[in-house]
Nucleic acid binder design. Sequence first.
RNA 1: GCCGCUGUGGUGAAAUCGGCAGACACACGGGACUUAAAAUCCCGAGGUAGCAAUACCGUACGGGUUCAAGUCCCGUCAGCGGCACCA
Length: 803
Amino acid sequence: MMKYDFAQVEKKWQDIWERDNTFAATDDYTKPKFYPLVEFPYPSGQGLHVGHPRSYTALDIVARKRRMQGYNVLYTMGWDAFGLPTENFAIKNHIHPEIVTKNNVANFKHQLKSLGLSFDWTREINTTDPDYYRWTQWIFLQLFKHGLAYKKEMSVNWCTSCKCVLANEEVVNGVCERCGGEVVHKVKNQWMLGITQYAQRLIDDLDSVDYIERVKTSQINWIGRSTGAEIDFATTAGDVLTVFSTRPDTLYGATYMVIAPEHPYVEKWAGQITNLEEVHAYQQEAARKSDFERAEMNKEKTGVRIAGVNGINPVTGGEIPIFISDYVLMTYGTGAIMAVPGHDERDWEFAKKFDLPIIEVVAGGNVAEAAFTDCDTGILVNSGILNGLSVEEAKQKMIQWLAENGKGREKVNYKLRDWVFSRQRYWGEPIPIIHCPHCGMVAVPEEQLPLRLPEVESYEPTDNGESPLAAIEDWVNTPCPVCGAPAKRETDTMPQWAGSSWYYLRYCDPHNNKELASKEALDYWAPVDWYNGGMEHTTLHLLYSRFWHKFLYDIGVVSTPEPYAKRTSHGMILGENGEKMSKSRGNVVNPDDIVKEYGADTLRLYEMFIGDFEKSATWNASAIKGCKRFLDRLWNLMEIAAEGEGYSAGLESSFHKTVKKVTEDIEAMKFNTAIAAMMTLLNEIYDAGSITTGEFKTLLLLANPFAPHLTEEVWEQMGFAGQISGQTWPGYDPAKCVDSTVEIVVQIAGKIKARLQVPADIAAPEAIALAKADPAVAELIAGKQIVKEIYVPGKLVNIVCKG
RNA sequence: GCCGCUGUGGUGAAAUCGGCAGACACACGGGACUUAAAAUCCCGAGGUAGCAAUACCGUACGGGUUCAAGUCCCGUCAGCGGCACCA
């Protein structure tokens, strides 16, 4: 018997699959479809990481199995290739980002092909391809036309190191998610996308999709819906200061107010404020602080009283002071609050520091010691019309009172903010807008798309915060498409999240040059049936693409309100030391090395066997050998396989059970136990010492999604008809998955005392009688009173005695 | 601080509904083959005591429910992830 030469065999089959387009999806829209999706990678210079194949192999297994079950499967790959690392590499090495991208893609593609993934490579896409980003720009223009893309002067997160604006989602712990650089606030004119208009639908429609629970929870928390009321406070300046509160029931306990440092009323009240200098000084100090500093210093409350203007509590009529403090954010609610120190921890802290009165309006705690925030048990006191009510009742009554008296209204707020969409960088999709002195902002006519990136001398971002595109005069200057007057192009580009917000739609019809995809293709393939990806994309990519999809649904481009029917997530693969793999920690495992030493099938099998797919797993170089051994033993079955379609050596029910287990486990993402079941069966076959060719075929079919190269080769060498990837997935007979006799245990008061072989369908009285007849059991129960007898079918008999 | 998840041998982990804890592997020990090693094959193994049959203990910790708890309930501790002055 020839030893299994994985290198030669894997190359052979990869070439055949490529030559024959074996895994291409067909455009036969009458067949049942299955659309699995994995997140397309950013083709970095470092190449593939062993984390990538975990997700890709998992859905490859599902895809291969579903193809064998008769589905038309669309499983494909592409490149999310715009982005900063490529641009930075280009700057440093003076190579065009397009060339860098091309090289990286070639490398990634070569690596992926060596893993035997059954992608339909005829549908490969690249977000930096003008034929692709043409449609990214087209979607942007539709958003613009519907008022969902707009420009706004606002305070944005500015990474001092990348010299670029960041979305809120890209700021982590006050620093830049990508480079760890300091993030400061900068007031800039930015493109924004109105994702907040979709906030409620993004929450509600989670009920209609099959996402793992933690993804749903994270998205709901991120969107951060709060219900409460807006309340209008008259001020002694003669105007009205509106606040948002989730606790309108505590209005009688509002003893002061606070506005955010950026609140416009400071300027409005400038004439009345008697300590304006002090207030301005505080504003400047707050503006200077970075997010990181604000987060660091959040233990200690700071603030300045606005002297000369007071608020008037609408229910008590009493005058209360107004403060300016950075614990109130301009970006949430109205940028102003009513402070109820008795029942809000932050207000309590602030009141203590500034020696402000604390009034108890909800009984149940001790407001001298701490804020009492329990909404379930508290009863309203010192609150006029609300006295004696529960918190919930009081909220309703107060909202009603406010509405009736014109002092406020019910209100829902979201933490989610509109998406800061512009970047001042080169390597992104140009925003297709022209600024005309007469017509204002004008869309580039759709027939002129794609608006291509111009050639530039330098990709270096500028210190004044302008994109490198701003320096290309002959590109920037262009006539207005409406009036023909000299006008200027928008020079900001889109963030990396743009291209990835709709790529799954392009796979459906990737070569269409008339629309982003044909309606027929979209109606057939969408939504994605199963999307697997990392948890890190939950509040970024996943939320953004749901938003874009809903918009495309609203304008009739797609026919489903959600892009992904099902979302699952894989755990990270950690280095051998249990830490996250990184160059600096020196614990990175390169998949190429594993493929070279053990072969792709072994790598695939190992990554699926490593543990619970959803949990993070620690790489273990020696554990790979077990998977290699399994494949070698599978290969060596060729030596003992004997002609015959039936079952040999009493393995029939084992085969049926294994087919059932593997079939079900693949769909449940329990790849590790599916593999264990095949290992068990293989051990049984070797124990039996023989296998028929019929049995061998079944085992090869089960193993094929996991180890496609080896199983193809064995199939061929055994002379079985056709290629294994074109065969039908094996079925099983549920009746044959159960044994005719089973071993049950006999317990006395829960402790095992005997084991019996009984018919599987034995009735309870017979089973108990048999148990009592067992000599060991009989001796133990002799002369005792039996209190209880339990029979669990196929499992055990438990006898409970007294005395 | 809030929300979510997790805690099982030397290691990675299994264990539909509450029903034989540790499947399947790795590493380890012993043996076979070999001049030798690798590879391969066979055997062993949760802990304690015992030559053994066997007994007792055992799923982070403390309680509870149950004939029966890794699984359910209450409390505690530890770790991981997310959010974090969002009124």
